[in-house]
Every structure is written in C-alpha cells, then in structure tokens.
Nucleic acid binder design. Structure first.
Length: 486
RNA sequence: GCGUCCCUAGCUCAAUUGGCAGAGCAACGGACUCUUAAUCCGUAGGUUCCGGGUUCGAUUCCCGGGGGGCGUACCA
C-alpha cells in the first residue's frame, strides 16, 4: 500500500543518494555516549556523537536538533556557515527518526542548554517511517502520548522509542534477570537447558500447547514446567542446577497471566524448602537493588519493604482467620454453598479444590507481603514432601508480594514409591492429565535423588512488582496478539 | 470462553437529532542566525477497521465479521 508520508521519505532517500551520500553506510566512527558528553560538559575539543533525530527547530540559517541514544538526549546546533554545502543540503533532507553522527565542540547556549556545535554531519540511517512525535513541555507535561496498546504491542520498536517508561522497564528487567543469574552462579549453581518440546508434559497442572514432530511422527507438547527434567539432573549428580526459560500454558490471558512466560527454576541437593526461603529472600532483595529501586518499593500506590525476613503465613490458619470459620472441618456440601454465596465458580467441587479457591478468594490476592504461605495440604502438592509430624500438609511455600504469586517451592518428594502412588492417583482424577506417567522421571527417582529443595520463580511477575507495572504484557517484549491479515 | 467498551489523517483527538468528515502535532512550500511543545504565513493529507442492511442521506442506527482495551472464568 502506498502512503504519502513514506513516499516523501523515499524521495528524500533518492535525493540523498544523488548527493553521493550512502544513506545506509556500513559503519561509522566511534562516538561517545550522550551521557558521557553531558559528564564532560563544555569543551573546545571536538566530540563525536551518534543518535536518532527526535526534534528539529529551524531558524533560517540555523537549526537546533535533538539527538538521542540509549544513554540520553542532547541538543545539536547546526549552522549553514559551519557545514559544507553538501551537509547543509543533507540537513534539509533529514527527517525525525533518521540516525546521524555529528562532531564538534560542546558549548552552552544562551538559555543554558548543553549543545554540540556540529562541524561534521554524517547520515547513519535514513528512516522511511514517520513515528509518532511525543513532546514534553517545560512543565513536564507529555503531549500526544501514544496510548494505543495494540499499535505499541505490534510495533515494540516504536514503543521503545516513544515511551521512555517502556525502555526503562525492559532495561530493568534485564538487570533483574542478570542479578538472579549472578546470585546462583556465585553459589555454584549450573545453568542448564532442558527440552522445550516434550513427549510427556508435567511438573504443573495446566493445559499444554500441542505440536507434531514430523520425522518422529509423534505428538509433542511445549513444556509447562522444567521441574521433572531438572530433578533428573539432580538425580544424576548435578547438585545445584537452574534454568531460566519460557514455559507455555494453553490457558487464558489476564493481567497476571501470559500463556508464554519466563520462569526460573532452581534445585539444590541437600537443601529443603527452608533454604529456598532464604534463597528467595536474598534473590528478591538483590533483584530490587539491580532494578534500582532498593528494598523499599511502591506497588500500585502501596508501600512495602522487601527486606528479609519475609512473613510466614499458614495456609490453613490464614484461611481460618480470614473467613472466620474453620472451613477444614466443613462438609463438601457446606463448602459448595459458601462458594455459591461468594460467587466463586468451581468446575470440580471436591473438598480440597474448593478450599484452594476459598484460599485464593479470602487470602492470596490480599497478601501485600512479602510473605511465604506455608503448610499446603498434601492434595494440592503432589511433588512435595510431607511435613514431619503432620502428614496432612507438605513442606511447601508459595511466595506472595502485592497480591501476586511469585514463587512456589518445596522440599522435593524423592521417595520413588510414594511419588508413583501420588502421580498415579493424580492421573486418575485430574482433567489436565491424559493418564500418562513420566516413567523416566520415576526411573530417576528410583536411581535416587538426595533430599532436595526446589523453587520456581515467575520472572515476569517479579519484574511487575519491581517496576510497579500493572500488566504482565508490559514486562514481555513481544506479547502474543492475534494475527491480523493484511 | 462470557460480559462490556472502543476502532476517524503518520500520532493524539473532535464531529449537534442521521445532514458538506475537522483541529493540534508531524509532513510539504515559504520567512526567520541561541531555539527547546520554537514562532509566523501558506499547502496537502481520509477505504471513518471490513462486509451487508435501513434511509433521500450513515463516522453516527441495525446485523455479521476482524482487531484491541477493561472486567470475569479457566491456570494444584
């Protein structure tokens, strides 16, 4: 489709080429980051800076332009007298969005703006698309901010350029992940990669994406968790392992759920869920520092502290307190009546599922935290060990911050006979399973896995908390959108 | 999946009861040698998401489709 705006830019491109200028040169001279130039300040010496043209203010034989790179923005002064004829002509053919390199001394204008006086102008890349022009006035008010989420998600390259917050958020995401990786690396954890395509899926309860493996003529699934493979590695003698990667759950999308999301799973031999609590506390505090927020953060207007130790909340206790009833002694029919009264839907109204839903309703989403919910009923925790002295509950916790479930951890079940029994039982009742046991996982447990603590951390959600972001999609660079046929 | 709201120029948004589709920014032409949402004069820019229907006439009302936002459900 022909569009007048891009026609104009293509024409300019043509004229630039006719000037003997390569609009897409293969390389350019070394340049200082803009932040570096701001540090140096005024100087007679010539500096070189590269960036994208974001604004232009013309005054006849003089032009002021703004140049931006990842480190910041700076004003450039371009005068007809200080440029060659070709450069001056080139300047007239530049558009907002073009990338250029300028060289010259740095001075301060009458109005106090640090400015590079351009004595050499080089085009680095001609932009053929007109991007939205977002302006910020002297009061700091943003004008014409782009708010069309569809447009921004479909063209993240535009979002990153016009929305400073977005660029900032993804920078923080990267630093958060780096800090967690460093934390684990420094403690002797081995980063590994396990299959994304799996013949049998497991490690969580969720609908999988299915695919066909052509040359094997077999159905495969995109993993819903890395758990069962990582435990195989612990059984094999990799005593400390972790994986940061995508899991895929063929489920609905909402503010806190993305079908493709990033999870960090780690397993530590000779440790238990109490050790995992320490790990979580330390990693979150470290990630907060890396994100530049420190441990006192604000999420959706609420102040909270990420300084360890985090609060412990009993699953059953908290439900008892929050509901004012001892729901654990209730009959299923009574629970069902309460569910109906509260308007909580439940497809499989067995006692334990209902208790879990009631917990979500009364407790989970209201936990500001940070807090560890402990003592989960065994029925909800098929891969966790039972608590000594209280076989009704498991050595498991879920970590909550600002109402979000951020982590799930337990002392891993390593009794192969018990694990088989539980998984077989599970397979009989769970709608999510197709009755396929992961025999190779059980084989690994039979070979023998030492006492082990394991944990999964929802990375996208951690980023949400540490960047005060309301939607998980805003922490994912390329969230899924329906395909639109053009 | 269900409910609800939205889709108009490159971007942000108008358009009375159903009556000539408009503005700001960006773009284009011109003026201007320290501006910074630069300013001033002028110009162009539209499949009103798509397809039907009602009507003399549809951006507006109705039906169907597409995409998105929000809420809700599913997600040990």
């Amino acid at each position: 489709m022909v569009n007048e705006q891009s026609d104009i830019r293509r024409e300019k491109l043509q004229r630039i080429t006719e000037l003997g200028i390569d609009p897409y040169p293969p390389r350019c001279a070394d340049a200082l980051p803009i932040a570096g130039i701001r540090e140096v300040g005024e100087t007679e010496e010539s500096v070189t800076v590269s960036g994208r043209l974001t604004a232009r203010r013309e005054h006849g034989k003089t032009v002021f332009a703004d140049l931006r790179d990842t480190t910041g923005s700076i004003q450039v002064y371009l005068g007809m007298k200080t440029l060659s004829d070709t450069e001056w002509t080139l300047l007239g053919l530049l558009d907002l969005g073009d990338m250029v390199q300028v060289s010259g001394p740095v001075f301060v204008t009458r109005t106090g703006e640090l400015t590079v006086k351009c004595q050499e102008l080089t085009l680095l890349c001609k932009s053929l698309r007109q991007l939205p022009v977002v302006k910020v006035d002297s009061q700091g008010v943003v004008h014409d901010e782009v708010t069309d989420r569809d447009y921004l998600y479909r063209h993240r390259c535009v979002d990153l350029q016009v929305n400073h917050d977005s660029m900032e958020r993804f920078g923080r995401r990267s630093r958060i992940i780096t800090s967690m990786r460093s934390y684990l690396d420094e403690r002797g954890f081995l980063e590994v990669e396990t299959p994304i395509l799996q013949p049998i899926y497991g490690g969580a309860a969720a609908d999988p994406f299915e695919t066909m493996y052509g040359s094997m003529d077999q159905k495969f699934y995109l993993r819903i968790a890395t758990e069962l493979y990582l435990k195989r590695l612990v059984a094999g003698g990799m005593e400390r392992v972790y994986e940061i990667g995508k899991d895929f759950r063929n489920e609905g999308v909402d503010r806190t759920h993305s079908p493709e999301f990033t999870q960090l799973e780690l397993y530590e031999a000779y440790a238990d869920y109490a050790v995992m609590m320490d790990r979580f506390e330390e990693m979150v505090a470290g990630a907060a520092e890396a994100a530049g927020t420190g441990t006192d953060i604000t999420v959706d207007g609420t102040l909270l502290s990420l300084r360890p130790p985090f609060q412990r909340i009993g699953f059953m206790d908290s439900l008892r307190k929050a509901s004012g009833e001892d729901l654990f002694s209730w009959e299923p029919a009574e629970l069902e009546a309460l569910m109906e009264e509260k308007g909580i839907a439940c497809e499989t109204p067995d006692r334990i599922t209902m208790l879990d839903k009631l917990f979500d309703h009364f407790v989970a989403h209201r936990i500001i935290g940070p807090a560890f919910v402990v003592d989960y009923p065994v029925e909800l925790s098929p891969l966790a060990k039972r608590k000594q002295g209280d076989p009704a509950v498991t050595e498991r916790f879920e970590a909550f911050i600002a109402g979000l479930e951020l982590a799930n951890a337990f002392s891993e079940q390593n009794n192969p006979l018990l694990q088989r029994e539980i998984l077989e039982e599970q397979a009989r009742f769970s709608a999510h399973r197709e009755g396929t046991l992961d025999e190779d996982f059980l084989y690994a447990l039979e070979v023998g896995m030492p006492p082990t603590g394991g944990m999964g951390i929802g990375v996208d959600r951690l980023v949400m908390v540490l960047t005060d972001t309301a939607r998980i999609r805003d922490t994912i660079l390329f969230p899924h959108l329906r395909r639109v046929d053009q």
